[in-house]
Write a protein that binds this DNA or RNA. Structure first.
Lengths: 192, 192
DNA sequence: TATTTTTAGCTAATCTAGTTAGCCATTATA
DNA sequence: TATAATGGCTAACTAGATTAGCTAAAAATA
C-alpha cells in the first residue's frame, strides 16, 4: 500500500515537473498524481503544504546550482574560473527553468532562508575573487554585479524576452568580459 | 448604483494594491472589495478575468517605466543619459515593487505582448546609444547587458536578496561605470 | 420625449486547488 | 507479540476564479 516515497525523492520529481511544465503548474494534486498518491498524503511529507514544497524546491535549486558551479570551477582560477561559473549558471537555468523560478520565488519578501540558500553559490564567487587582490568592498561590488547580471540575463533569456536575433552567446561573453575588465580596473585603482 | 469605474482607473488602483501588498495578494475579491463592487462585476471590465488584469498591469507597468525613463533622459546624452536612465529604473522598481513583479510575470513563457511592451523602454536605451558610434550588434549587446543587469539588480534588491551591509548605491554606480567602460571600449575596437 | 439598447452592477452556483480531520493498514521497534 | 510511528486514504471545508443569468441605470436613438 505504501508508495515508498521519501522527501528528497519527491522534491526531485517536483523539480523535474517544474522544469517541464513551469512552477505554477506544480500543484499538489498533479504532483500527487504523478507520485501515485492523493494530494492530502503529501502533507505527511510536507506538513507546511505547498508553501513548504516551494521552499524545499528553492533550497534544492540553490544547492544544485552551487554543486554545478563548484564543479566547473575546480582547477581554474581568475577569469577562467569566472567564465566557467557564468556559463555553468546560464546552462543551469536553461536546463532548469522551473527550478530557477522556484529559486527566486520562495517568500520573496523577507526570507532569511532564501538569503542563506544563496550563500553557497555566492561564496564560490567570493573565493574566486580572492585572487584579484581586491578590498572587501570591491569584492562585494563585483560579486553583486555579476550576480545581478547573471540573474537578469538568465531570467530574460529563459522567458524569451530577448527579441533580437543577434547571438545571445556573444552578448553573454561580451558582458562577462566587460565585468572582468571592471574588476581588473579595480586592482590598484582608487577605493570605491 | 453604478460605481462609475473605468478600466484605466481599476488598473491604477490594482497597481497601487500590488505595490502595497505584493502582486499575489491582488485577488479579484480583494480588488473588487477595494472598488466597492463584487468580484464577478470585474468581468465586465476584464472579460479575461485575473489573467487579463495581470496582463494589463504588465502593460501599464512598462508604459509607466518608459515615461519615467524618457522623462529623465531629456536633455542628457551619453553617460549622463545612461546614468539617469539606470537610476530612474532602480527608483521605479523601489517605488513599484508589485507592479515590477507584474511586469515580469505575465505569461512569461511565449508572450508576444510582453515583448512588445518592453520595446518602448528598450528603444530609449537604443536611442541614447546612437551617440556612441557603435555597430548595430554592439548596440544590441550593450542594451542587453544593461537590461539584464538592471533587472537582476532591481529584482534582488527589491526582495532583500543582498545580505551584505555594503552600500548598494555604490555597487549600482560601480556597475554602471563598468558597463559604460565596456561600451567605450567597443568604440573603435574590433567587431564583436 | 419615449423607446430601445448597452452597460455595469448583482446573486447564485460551479469548479479547482489547498488544506484539515480523522480513519486504517503497514512497518518498525521494544 | 504488542505497541508505536509512518504513510496512505476518504470526507469535508475553504477561498478564489469563473460562469450564467437577472436587473436597473445610463446612454443612444427613433
Amino acid at each position: 500500500m505504501k508508495a515508498g516515497l521519501d522527501k528528497q525523492k519527491i522534491i526531485e520529481i517536483a523539480a523535474n515537473m517544474a522544469d517541464e511544465k513551469g512552477i505554477t503548474n506544480v500543484t499538489l494534486k498533479v504532483l500527487a498524481n504523478e507520485l501515485g498518491i492523493k494530494s492530502p498524503s503529501l502533507y505527511k511529507h510536507f506538513s507546511g503544504g505547498l508553501d513548504e514544497l516551494n521552499k524545499e524546491l528553492m533550497l534544492y535549486g540553490w544547492c544544485s546550482l552551487e554543486s554545478e558551479i563548484t564543479r566547473v570551477a575546480i582547477g581554474k582560477a581568475k577569469d577562467d574560473a569566472i567564465f566557467a561559473i557564468c556559463h555553468a549558471y546560464r546552462n543551469f537555468v536553461s536546463n532548469h527553468k522551473g527550478l530557477f523560478e522556484a529559486m527566486q520565488w520562495y517568500n520573496m519578501y523577507q526570507s532569511k532562508e532564501h538569503l542563506k540558500a544563496t550563500q553557497g553559490s555566492i561564496s564560490v564567487l567570493f573565493q574566486v575573487l580572492e585572487a584579484y587582490g581586491l578590498t572587501e568592498k570591491q569584492k562585494v561590488h563585483s560579486v553583486r554585479m555579476l550576480r545581478a547580471f547573471l540573474q537578469g540575463f538568465a531570467d530574460i533569456e529563459s522567458h524569451g524576452g530577448y527579441g533580437n536575433p543577434t547571438s545571445l552567446d556573444d552578448t553573454f561573453d561580451f558582458a562577462i568580459k566587460t565585468i572582468l575588465n571592471g574588476i581588473c580596473d579595480l586592482q590598484g585603482g582608487e577605493e570605491v
